[in-house]
Amino acid sequence: MIQFWRVVTTGARNFTRNMWLSMAATAVMTVTLTIVLVSFISNSALTSTIKGVTNKIDVSVYLNDNITSDQLTGFENQLKADPNVVKVTYVSKAQALATYQSENANNQKLLQAISETDNPLPASLEIKTKDPKNLTSVIAIIGQPANAALQSDPPSYSGTNKVTIDRIVHAADFFKNGGTYASILFIIISVLIIFNTIRMAIFTRRDEIEIMKLVGATKWFIRGPFLVEAAMYGIIAAVIALILAYTLVLGGAPKLASYIDVTSTIQIFKDYPILVIGGELIIGIAIGCFSSLLAMSRYLKL
């Protein structure tokens, strides 16, 4: 135990002794860990955004307020009979209002506007189809005069937006892959920089290493401080990266919310802070220790 403690304090002292080298290594590690974390955030945010986009209902039919339940069931059954229709969901006025309020939770003006009148939102039937590009049969059913009479507003279709949605999905994939590649690239850069930092530390401390051997230090007692030093780059960098990421995600979320779906990411950050913090620390320590071991296997002959 006392040995472990001495190794840790020696490592920490060596970290401060080579302040400039340590700072450079820590800085590179910080950039890397920030990129890893941002890449993780944007991955999860983009994934849930895309899920939201692609799961969007294909056709919405808005219903008059005075529709009877017989009329509703009749209309619904007609739609369900169509082979292209996968699912028909009835959304009541109250549900529509609740959804609207939660979607615009950050926009006080809209919330206020809607609360000042009676619920102006219509009930609707949300139709999910097998093939959203081929809606002729569904449109025919909706367009029947008997059914058209039940509707308060013209129906909305997503089919026309399909191309745009596909493009968004592709762009998102591109960014997700880009994030992964950038993470890998910067991890490699960090490994190289830390490898060199530790290599130089081994050279500058070769007299000390010789003396340690001379007085009977075990191999791990000599190697330990170099591992501790490299792990410290990782730990300090992880802490900085986490502070940056938490500020970005929790502080910037309201502004980002209108562009991408960050709720699930925020949820991860809020619900599993230990997972996020621990994961980041482990990545940092792993990169540091791996590079250090690599440098020692090449340059520290014991």
Partner: peptide, 9 residues
């Protein structure tokens, strides 16, 4: 130093 490396208290 010689005692530290061998774990002396």
């Amino acid at each position: 130093f010689a005692m530290e490396v061998s774990g002396t208290r």
